[in-house]
């Protein structure tokens, strides 16, 4: 487009995101009864919303292709990856290995999200968090979760 190194801009990618979401929604809405204005089925309102979203997404997409706009912000993969992974690990472990282990593993993984963490500080934080959570959430607020495997 503008040059060989055209990387797209925020409008283009926002449009792309919206079109993708609308597309997935429309695929699913196909299986729902649409109904008529007088007798609206479960799919009537979602269909309308998805179509509007699709239209807006296409507008943004075209605008992004034609008009130059601000570029997409830099993605920092290190914090993104490790924070997401730490949450997933918590989710997997909390019911299988108990709350204490889930917290310790989450802190251990989240530790890598920042370059400034030190193992000493993170270990102390992790142990303190596990202990406090055990007291506050399980003992005081009585969340039904096992502490240990």
């Amino acid at each position: 487009m503008k040059s060989l190194a055209w990387r797209g801009n925020i409008d283009f990618y926002s449009g792309l995101l919206l079109v993708a979401v609308a597309g997935v929604a429309l695929l699913y809405i196909r299986t729902l009864a649409i109904g008529t204005v007088l007798e609206m089925g479960p799919g009537y309102f979602p269909l309308g919303l998805a179509l509007v979203l699709l239209g807006m997404g296409l507008c943004l997409l075209v605008k992004g292709l034609l008009v130059s706009g601000p570029p997409v912000g830099m993605f920092y993969l290190r914090p993104l990856f490790f924070i997401l992974l730490s949450f997933a690990a918590f989710g997997v472990l909390v019911e299988r290995a108990g709350l204490i282990l889930a917290i310790l593993v989450q802190v251990a993984i989240a530790h890598f999200a920042s370059r400034e963490t030190t193992w000493r500080e993170s270990s102390i934080t992790g142990v303190a968090l596990a202990a406090t959570s055990a007291v506050v959430f399980v003992w005081l607020l009585k969340i039904p979760v096992e502490l240990l495997p």
Partner: peptide, 28 residues
């Protein structure tokens, strides 16, 4: 320092989400 604070926030968020329905699915 934020390097300690963010660990605390992350753990509280995880427990918070989990405890609404006691479901790992919500964490995912």
């Amino acid at each position: 320092p934020y390097r300690i604070l963010y660990l605390v926030i992350a753990v509280i968020c995880a427990i918070g989400v989990y405890s609404v329905n006691n479901s790992s699915f919500d964490v995912y």
